[in-house]
Design a protein around this nucleic acid. Structure first.
Lengths: 348, 348
DNA sequence: TGACGAAATTGGAACGTTCCAAATAAAGGA
DNA sequence: TCCTTTATTTGGAACGTTCCAATTTCGTCA
């Protein structure tokens, strides 16, 4: 059962050439003669040979294996991100290890260590909460390219790809103000994360720019999940001065907020404006369709993968920090009139 | 920059022992003396050595790398499945390649080949549509354990883990009939898949058992996605004899159906009963909460991973076919009364 | 005809482990 | 003291590739 692996030597014997020649054929070098090449290929087919990459990169080749570590694959945002990465990695002939940390730092450490032992030649990491630059130091020092996505890690000397959180939040709030809202809440997200801080920063400055006073009690953190969103909106509705609109930390929270509103017999988009963040795939087809800040997670994944590939081939490229642009996608949940003219009219 | 890898030899030199001893320490063999072990460990720490697994399993060790190939990671069902697998694989000290095929057979072939070259010691595959047993033959012949999940492949001599599709559909339809529905549709799914066939089979037999005539025109295939569901329900509502309830191919379709109903000003759960299939994580928190056949994707992932691990350690275990039980979870979207008493009353 | 260079092929060392057989050290026993 | 055992330690071959340097094969040119 456990049959012997067929190796280049077997092929060589069968084709009546030397192992070196077989090796040349495998890397289709122009050095081998056409007839020899054919003989060798025939032998490969007949013996159904499987190339052993481990042996090859033991000898020194770069490994064509990348690691991807994300913190919550059950969130569509990260699933999409992973799919985007997978696409470009696959096309580049790479294969990826993918691991989910579930925000668990120990797991993250273990998984990264394990991937290193398996010889990854690059890593894309969406760091778990609490990751420090010390966690990345060994990788960086060993010259393994690392690209951080979604979340930054203070002091890390690695490339990173973040979305324009403050800008997106600003645009969303501006949109709500334009629709006439004056009491706007910010719902969801863990208050101790950088992403939260940035989005809230954009939220605050947009309010300030419109000379509106944001109340602290309208900023309501929660788990960045659907359940968290439902809870947060409920809290918001219980505030003495009740907001009429909310920017949510992400789309999951926004969907949860819609659920929470319905549970109180309020229709999102009509009785209360909801704006999400991320533009996950369901945002477009949900009812009401979600107005959200489009981050294009899949595109971001592709981009991150490209950055990683760039660094891998460039050898030691220095860390670049890229901010992915975002764009507000106005759909139904914010209660905007159907088209621009209508909108102008409404607030003329 | 591209520093030399530190190897066991470096460690050996530093600790003043032979490479063999270092190797023994690494596999913490009881043969080495306590003091020697300490010296070696110190050296390992000082030189921040990274174990090279590729070299190790070149020598013959089993690889502790598994492959996971799914066909649509953007569908929460598969994302959850992957998370479940990841959990048990990680705990077993494995690391996984994960690839997404997007139902593309060529991609599937490529990634499987690539994973093989990288020396996976087992594969979990949710086969793309159209996969034949010939695609798996090389793997199987080479003695690489394969576990098929979700979808079967005719004639494949591999283990598989499928959910009880017919049984689940039966239970769902029985539930709807119990609620008084007589015109029940089946929405979504590609008609040429085995899963579709099974679910429809259960659907039909439950109708037959209740002496209801299912109309062919109430079986409306579509892409198994949210968008497909919206479209399918629209078609259903356009039928001359309009159904009052639907069993959907999966939860994504069910959510889409809810969207489609709302777009026509019908409230799912009140004006039309919707039942899903899979019980993805959002099913519970959606509004209305989705009545669905719970497949527990994460649990299924865990189970599949366990099966694979079993086969890997057992060497050549023979193929086992496991059918995972399913269970109908009654929530709001089917319009069932809140509790059993109420239900009894309603149809007394 | 012999020499020369280009084209094609090849042997062998190297990559970083493991594991076997053999060597050495320590510890008893006579 | 010397011989056994037992407890440690070690050199070297092997795993399946790649790649360098060396060799063989040929057609060509003087």
């Amino acid at each position: 059962m456990a049959k012997e692996r067929t190796t280049v030597i077997d092929i060589a014997r069968r084709a009546g050439v030397s192992k070196s020649t077989v090796s040349l054929v495998l890397q289709n070098s122009p050095l081998v003669g056409a007839d020899t090449r054919e003989k060798v290929n025939a032998a490969i087919r007949e013996l159904d040979y499987v190339y052993n990459r481990a042996a090859a990169n033991l000898r020194g080749a770069r490994s064509r294996v990348a690691g991807i570590v994300v913190n919550d694959l059950t969130n569509s945002f990260f699933a999409e991100l992973a799919v985007g990465m997978d696409m470009v990695m696959q096309s580049a002939g790479f294969v990826q290890f993918l691991a989910n940390t579930g925000e668990n730092l120990d797991r993250q450490r273990e998984v990264i260590a394990s991937m290193r032992e398996h010889g990854i030649s690059g890593l894309i990491l969406s760091p778990a909460r609490g990751t420090t630059s010390a966690d990345l130091k060994p990788l960086v020092e060993a010259g393994v390219p690392v690209v951080l996505v979604v979340r930054a890690v203070a002091g890390a000397k690695t490339s990173s790809l973040m979305s324009d959180n403050a800008g997106g939040a600003w645009a969303a709030v501006e949109h709500l103000i334009g629709l006439g809202h004056r009491r706007i809440a910010f719902l969801g997200g863990f208050a101790d994360t950088a992403v939260f801080a940035e989005r809230v920063r954009g939220f605050r400055s947009a309010l300030a720019a419109a000379r509106l006073s944001g109340r602290e009690e309208w900023i309501i953190p929660s788990a960045p999940s659907r359940a968290g969103g439902a809870q947060a909106v409920e809290t918001a509705l219980g505030r003495p001065e009740r907001p009429t609109a909310a920017l949510c930390f992400n789309d999951a929270v926004a969907f949860g907020a819609c659920d929470g509103l319905r549970a109180k017999n309020l229709e999102p988009g009509r009785d209360f404006a909801v704006v999400g963040f991320d533009d996950v795939i369901e945002a477009k087809t949900a009812v009401p369709a979600l107005t959200t800040v489009s981050v294009d997670p899949q595109g971001m994944g592709r981009r991150a993968a490209q950055m990683l590939l760039g660094q891998i081939s460039a050898g030691a490229a220095d860390a670049e920090t890229v901010t992915a642009g975002v764009r507000l996608v106005v759909r139904e949940s914010s209660g905007a009139p159907r088209n621009e003219e209508a909108r102008e009219e409404a607030f003329a």
